[in-house]
Design a protein around this nucleic acid. Structure first.
Length: 809
RNA sequence: GCCGAAGUGGCGGAAUGGCAGACGCCAGAGACUUAAAAUCUUUUGUCCGAUAGGGCGUGCGGGUUCGAGUCCCGCCUUCGGCACCA
């Protein structure tokens, strides 16, 4: 038969309409089928629209979702918009348009683009974090956090972006610069809303053992939470002149075994000790000028000049080493950070590199307490191989034992105890910006911070004239006196609303729950919906969100679990991640580099199915790969070949054994590779099958069915169209995933290689069930073996059934 | 410095310890065509060789093994993350 040309321009919109009309991909909250919840990170709808990187994770999960539907699952595969955020606000400021309008415009562009690629999202469940019916529940969750003491306001030094004029979470500071705009970040003292994620440090760590995340994701989260085991130790402070005892100074150390080697102490420049004892400190001027100098450094500068230690002694105050009983000096230096541990350390220069450098720089005594190195020339830090010396009752013990003995000794004297310390810090939750969720708190001069009653939610963003933050660093909402001035929900007296808004991470911390029940006006999701859908079965997203979104949403979710609002403790059963798509020049795609590929252009030239195929074929899914226009053309060529397979269709259904094995082998390969996210090799195997069909010049209708069903999740439009043209029945999306028959893959005999000393020297066809014993009897006489041996004596013959014959001559 | 991933043709990349380079791109040859494009067939790691065949080949150096891209030891390089975290 003759076949008309493959025309994606015509068939793609046709099938997109059909799917939509048939509600083919809408999930049901009441289904007898097993459920499967597939999730991709919802995008920030920027003004630029989708770029070539977006479709990669979406197509991957679309392939999985479509396969699961064919496998008989009730699949929830939703999409939404993480639409609060700075770029929209900046655009609104520049062009004097309300961010709401910008957001709506961007969303409709993104939605249209996603639909043109043929993703099987359930559009009936779309969510938008900026819609009041959505952020009402973001505010509700915040109120629960507040009521449980996990949201608090604190005057703390924060990372402040001088360009965005907002406070940033530690996670948002990248190399000393603002994660979003690249602007300079300085430290500033400001009263900010904080979320106590640190209370969940251990829970978040333990939860990782219960979920199926890629190892690199788990290790990055563990790293970020940064648990370390050690001891807290109190050092008695005394007045240097009178010897009069002062308050004890508490430190955290991971090396309590080295306590006898602590020859001085160092406190952070911000440590309260300096103010507390200003009356007895004798060099206050010197100290203050040091504090002043170091506070002017940003965090970035502080670490940049890490090589050269600076510091000044705190004269007038001394500490007593509890192990030796000796008086040791107290110093202040910015290599000790106020934000970790207690902001003070015991310095053991013999066995800590930083302390060693500091001691050398300022001529402080270095004492060896663990043998094995030369502490005068460098710090000896090995903990596995060393014995305690110069340490009284610890002498002769190994480091690990000495730690235990010292902790026992300290706790029995009430001088210290074992302690676990985390690097994780509380989450700075305030933004001095307009385009975010208002924080539903009222500040009353009489009652303090009062939560808005829940029936007053959502607290809707008011209209303002100007979206710029004030020069004082206040949110633009602060200028809205009508809105700010309110009454206290508690006493009814005059009070002021909080004018900071929430960070972008708020709305994305729970959005997967809203998809389960997006129109519920009474709860963020009903108990039935939560019970039915449960954990997200498979969540794919970017590595860049591992310590931000992924950690934050696990924290919120675990909190919701603890207050009984959700029935399962971890949100995501499985988490995978994709590699970035780079520009053709191997660099990150960006407007400034001019290497951005717009999916619309690819669709216009080649079609959506080609775009999808190429995104899945270009390489290993978890690796960054440069875009190649020629590679795209190759995928289009493959689809053209699939289209022309129609000319080979025969009515005879008998298939030769060899071809049968190829077909079943392909079903197995594609089925298994999709589960492992080895999309490139799944496609390669389908290409091979099509090549075989071309060589045969014939394909049965049964084989065509199998081929189209396997290819359908990758290229859904063309496969449905051929299916329809060939009258193969109800559309593929309503059918079953093909099964493979292991029996069809079995062969009686197989050709294997003959190696001589590991080098291939011949081939031999043998029965597959030839046993080892039989082989050792028969093979030395086999002509193919004798020819490979080429007259030399066979000293040893290794036969691996179905694999190899190796001769040692 | 620490944690993680990776290094294979001209290119993107395949290979449960068992035939390295599947599949695709690029390039070459042929068929079809007045011609070109498209399509179909075919060649394509590298060196020696007319062929048969052989040598060399998975970042580098060792090792284990009948057999190593794969496992072990020691390096080098690249990328991602963390970093004065006591």
């Amino acid at each position: 038969m003759t076949v008309s040309d493959y025309s994606p321009r015509l068939i793609e919109p046709k099938w997109q309409r059909r799917w939509s009309d048939a509600r083919a991909f809408e999930a049901s909250n009441t289904s007898s089928k097993p459920k499967f919840y597939a999730l991709v990170e919802f995008p920030y709808p920027s003004g630029e629209g989708l770029h070539a990187g977006h479709p990669r994770p979406y197509t991957a999960m679309d392939v999985i979702a479509r396969k699961r539907r064919l496998q008989g699952f009730n699949v929830l595969f939703p999409m939404g918009w993480d639409a609060f955020g700075l770029p929209t606000e900046n655009y609104a400021i520049k062009h004097r348009i309300h961010p709401r309008i910008v957001t709506e415009r961007n969303i409709s562009r993104f939605r249209k683009q996603c639909q043109s690629i043929g993703f099987s999202f359930d559009w009936s469940r779309e969510v938008d974090t900026t819609s009041p019916s959505y952020y009402r529940w973001t505010q509700w969750i915040f109120l629960q956090l507040f009521k449980h003491g996990l949201a608090y306001k604190a005057e703390i030094p924060i990372n402040y972006c001088t360009s965005c004029k907002v406070g940033l979470a530690n996670e948002e500071v990248v190399g000393g610069a603002c994660e979003r705009c690249g602007g300079e970040v300085v430290r500033r003292i400001k009263k900010q809303w904080m979320l106590k994620i640190t209370s969940y440090a251990q829970t978040l760590l333990d939860g990782l053992d219960t979920v199926d995340f890629l190892d690199k994701i788990k290790s990055q989260q563990r790293n970020w939470i940064g648990r370390s085991e050690g001891a807290s130790v109190d050092f008695q402070l005394v007045s240097s002149s009178s010897g009069e005892p002062l308050e004890p100074l508490r430190v955290f150390t991971t090396r309590p075994d080295t306590l006898f080697g602590a020859t001085y102490m160092v406190i952070a420049p911000e440590h309260p000790l300096i103010t507390n004892y200003s009356n007895i400190i004798t060099n206050l001027d010197e100290i203050h000028s040091y504090i002043d100098a170091s506070s002017r450094k940003s965090d970035f500068e502080r670490t940049e000049i890490a090589k050269d230690k600076t510091g000044v002694p705190v004269n007038g105050v001394s500490a007593v080493n509890p192990a030796t009983g000796k008086r040791i000096p107290v110093w202040t230096s910015d290599y000790v950070l106020m934000g970790y541990g207690t902001g003070a350390i015991m310095a053991v220069p013999g066995h800590d590199e930083r302390d060693w450098e500091f001691a050398k720089r300022f001529n402080l005594p270095i004492v060896e307490v663990v043998s094995g190195g030369d502490v005068q020339s460098s710090a000896y830090t090995d903990v596995d191989d060393g014995t305690l010396v110069n340490s009284g009752f610890l002498d002769g013990l190994r480091v690990a034992d000495a730690k235990r003995v010292m902790i026992d000794w300290l706790s029995s004297r009430n001088l210290g105890e074992s302690k676990i310390q985390y690097k994780l810090r509380d989450w700075v939750f305030s933004r001095q910006r307009y385009w975010g969720e208002p924080i539903p708190i009222v500040d009353c001069p009489n009652c303090g911070l009062i939560p808005l009653p829940e029936d007053q939610l959502p607290l809707v963003l008011p209209e303002v004239d100007n979206y710029l933050p004030t020069d004082a660093g206040e949110s633009p909402l602060a200028a809205m006196t009508d809105w700010v001035n309110t009454t206290c929900p508690h006493c009814g007296g005059p009070a002021k609303r909080e004018t900071d808004t929430m960070p972008q991470w708020a709305g994305s911390s729970w959005y997967f729950l809203r998809y389960m029940d997006p129109y519920n006006n009474n709860q963020f999701a009903s108990k039935e919906a939560l019970d039915y859908w449960g954990m997200v079965d498979w969540y794919n997203g970017g590595m860049e969100h591992t310590t931000l979104h992924l950690l934050y949403s696990r924290f919120w979710h675990r909190f919701l679990y603890d207050i009984g609002a959700v029935p399962f403790p971890e949100p995501y059963a499985k988490r995978t991640s994709h590699g970035m798509i780079l520009g053709a020049n191997g660099e990150k795609m960006s407007k400034s580099r001019g290497n951005v590929v717009n999916p619309d252009d690819v669709i216009a030239e080649f079609g959506a199915d080609t775009l999808r195929m190429y995104e899945m074929f270009l390489g290993a899914f978890d690796q960054a790969i440069p875009w190649s226009t020629q590679g795209v053309a190759g995928c289009r060529r493959f689809l053209d070949r699939v289209w022309r397979v129609q000319q080979f269709v025969v009515n005879d259904e008998t298939i030769p054994q060899k071809l049968l094995a190829d077909v079943h082998g392909c079903v197995k390969k594609v089925s298994e590779d999709i589960e492992r996210m080895k999309f490139n090799t799944a496609i390669a195997s389908m290409m091979t099958l099509v090549n075989v069909i071309y060589n045969e010049g014939a394909i049965t209708r049964g084989t065509l069915r199998v081929l189209l069903a396997l290819l359908n999740p990758f290229a859904p439009h063309i496969t449905e169209e051929i299916w329809e043209l060939q009258n193969l029945g109800e559309p593929i999306y309503s059918r079953d995933w093909p099964q493979w028959d292991p029996a069809a893959l079995e062969r009686d005999e197989i050709e294997i290689a003959i190696q001589v000393g590991g080098k291939v020297r011949g081939r031999v066809t043998l029965p597959l069930n030839l046993s080892k014993e039989e082989a050792e009897r028969v093979l030395p006489e086999h002509p193919a073996i004798l020819s490979a041996a080429n007259g030399r004596t066979i000293r040893k013959l290794i036969y691996v059934p179905g694999r190899i014959v190796n001769l040692v001559l």
